[in-house]
Every structure is written in structure tokens, then in C-alpha cells.
Design a protein around this nucleic acid. Sequence first.
DNA 1: TGAATAGTGTCTTTCAGACAATATGCC
DNA 2: GGCATATTGTCTGAAAGACACTATTCA
Lengths: 235, 235
Amino acid sequence: MCYNNTMSDDKVKFDCIGVAVDIVIFNIIDNRLKVLLIKRAPKPENVWAIPGGFVRRGESLLTTAKRELDEETGVKDVYLEQLYTFGNPERDPRTRVVSVAYFALVNSEKLDIKTGSDAKDAAWRDIDEIPKLAFDHNKILDYSRQRLIWKLEYTNVAYSLLPRLFTLTELQRVYEAVVDRKLDKRNFRRKLLKTGLVKETTMTRPGAHRPAILHEFTSNKAEYISNPFGAFLKK
Amino acid sequence: MCYNNTMSDDKVKFDCIGVAVDIVIFNIIDNRLKVLLIKRAPKPENVWAIPGGFVRRGESLLTTAKRELDEETGVKDVYLEQLYTFGNPERDPRTRVVSVAYFALVNSEKLDIKTGSDAKDAAWRDIDEIPKLAFDHNKILDYSRQRLIWKLEYTNVAYSLLPRLFTLTELQRVYEAVVDRKLDKRNFRRKLLKTGLVKETTMTRPGAHRPAILHEFTSNKAEYISNPFGAFLKK
DNA sequence: TGAATAGTGTCTTTCAGACAATATGCC
DNA sequence: GGCATATTGTCTGAAAGACACTATTCA
């Protein structure tokens, strides 16, 4: 049992439960959807897991998430939102821990994967090649995958997964990687233009063949879009 | 600081944080969307709040939510889902408490509002007449309102807010109460039929005028619907 | 000029949104 | 028959979904 320290008629008594924040960090590498996994140093040792740690005194949940994210990837100011809270009594065999899961979207432009004190190793793993993870982390990952699909359907967060300048084909590859399905190029572009999500620049991507026009997002703030992809991304 | 009780190389150290579950309980009364509020007996005293309590040893978050719901309303087997977790360090001035908010949908058919030991008083309050609540409960309520709208757009959970048999006008009133806007009767029914959400029965509702055909839901399991209201319920 | 990728338009069907008259039961 | 509520259909514009050819650059 825990108690707070204030005067007696304000006394609060409650069971002692650890509160942790775990983060699913998504990235697109080589047109594939990847997740950052770490190999745990603490128990359970040498098992893959998603990054996370306990909430510290005075930290909000979001602050904890940002700190963990910075420790693992060295990035700040990325897309980050709360996902779900997992609290089954047996989810951590060591002691009672409630995990508030967050999910983050980063792009490869200026990533810097560190190996923090908590982790022996870190690696980007393809979403379709996830090993058995510690605790209930596979469940958390399933959940975050669904959320990501939904986010691409109804918001503009795709900007978080790409560098500032990109081609329309690259953007389509992001959507295809997330929904795990080929999309029709003409319909995708028609739909995309209606959303007002992106605009052309005057630059092109030099390549082996016809150069593609580079685009940028009209907004780098997370928001709902006016003509969401909704049904378009569904089967 | 808290520690678990196992052997030393499994030792886990973490700050002591209370984990509570608070529940937003929605109901439709007289065609208006209502929320169950309680008047607190513990500090802060005599302030309205949404029902809730600490997670007990061995309880999952969902179990806690079900227990609280039963204590407050006497109902079981209602629609209940996790909403969001609120964890700002200052949200409870007594001590550090993280609140996992749930939201529940009940119907008036067999409600039994109790006054539990924690609450001096309980009342259904109109969603548009919510007083200043304890802690950050007003924020929780705002959040749950948004979630409810979304749920009606994309899932069949409306069945939770109505008795087994209902008229189409009554169902429309539920949607109107939630989105807080009048809907076109013909378009609503056309859209509704496409969803496959409801089916006719052979019974009618006796009344002062032309009787309406009673309908029932085709499914009483929460699920996404195939032709969601989506855009229809938006402005 | 051939290879590879970028970019573009039409047709059909379905859905959203606006709109008003008829049907039925009760008194 | 009058009243109150229940029930039903059409038209128009927008979006979804299927589908194939032309344009440009480089080697």
C-alpha cells in the first residue's frame, strides 16, 4: 500500500502500481514500414521489446514519452500521440506495471539511433517480421498498426514519415507500405489533390529517368483533412 | 519509491503513483444526452465528479471499470471501452494519480442508480449543463463526447443507448442528441437502411396517433458497420 | 531509340444532400 | 373529419472505382 504525505483528513491510500510509458516508433525505410525495437538489458534480458520506461516524479505522461523518444532516437519534435493503456495484472511478471503506450512517427532525415543504458541494441524491424516480444508488446504493436492506418485515412500525419521534399510516388509508397496494398496511381493522385495535403515545388528529383516533381506538405501540424482518404484506402 | 518483492536481480524500482479508473457513463433520457455525475464524499468534498476509484490489487483496468460501473449503476454487460489516460502531475492535488478514463453507454431499461459509499449523491446531468467538476474531469468529458460522436458515425454502438425495441424516430433522436443537430428524416432512414443496422419487427408502439413500427438491432455486439454514417453526421 | 519512370482523363456507378406529399390511427 | 405522427421517392451534384495511354529523361 502507498500513502500520500499530506495531513490526515486528506489521506489517500492505494495499491502500489508502476506506471510506465512504452513507445511504438514507426519509420519508413526502403518503402517498408519499420518499427524501432530494442534488445532489453534489464529482465527479461536479451528479449526484443519496444522502448519505454517508468514515469518519473513530476513528469506528465507526454513528458515521459518525449524523454524516452529522445533517449532512443535523438529526435525531438516528431509526431507523438497516446495510443492505449495496457494494465493486465500479469503483463509484467516482475511486479504490477501499467503501461501507457504512445506511438510516434519519424522520418529518416535526421535520425540518430542511440544505444541507451537500458538497451544493449536497437534495430528497425519490418512490421511484417516482428519477433516474439517482451511482455504484451506484440499486442501493443498490433494496436498501433491499426491506429496508424486510421491516421493516414483521416489526418495529414503522413508528413511525419517523409522528409520535407518528396515525390508523389514516394508518398504513394508510404500509403502502400502502411495499408500493405497496391494503390491505383491515378486515383491516388486525384484523391490526394482533393485533400489539399500537398503542393508542388519547382524542384525535381534527378534520377536515371524522367525526373519527378518534388512536392511538400501544405501543413506540418497534425490535423484532420477535409477530404479524408477514408473509404479510398479500404478494400 | 516503490519496490517489488522479488529477488534482487529482478528488483524493480519506480515512483509511487496511484492508478485510478474514471468512467463517463452516457445515457439518453427524454431525447437528451445525459452523463452520470456523483457528488464526492472524499476530498474534494461536495464537488461533482464522474464516478471512479483506484485500481485494486489483481484487477485489470477493465475489471476496475466494470466494478465501478456496477457499484454506481447496478448494471453489467453494458458497452464499455477505454477512452484515454490522463496523467498530468498536478491533476489531483492530494497525490500523484494517473487516471485511465473509460466510457460506458447504458440505456434506461433497467438502470438502478445507487448511492455508493463514495458518493453522497448521484444524478444524470444534461451534457450541455455540466458544472465545474473535480480534477480534470471536464476535460475527460469533452474528450468522451468526441469519442461518442465518432462511435455513432462508424460503429453500431447506438444499440447500447436504446432498449431492445424502438422506433426509427427514437433512434434518430439518439443520433440528434449526440451530434446536437437536427437530421433530415428521409436521408437518415435511407442511410440507416444501407447500414443494415436495424430490422423491422411485427410490433408497433401504441400511441396517441399513427403507431410506429418497432425495430430492433441486427447485432448487439459492438462492431464497425459496413456503410458508416461518416460524412452524413457531419455538417 | 529503347528503357524506365512520371504524369494525365474518361466513363460508370454509388452516395450525399436538398426537398414535400401521402398514409395511418386516434380522438 | 381533423390532428398528429409515420412513412415514402426524386433529382442533382460529387465522389469512388475501374481502366491505358502519352511524356520525359537518360543511357
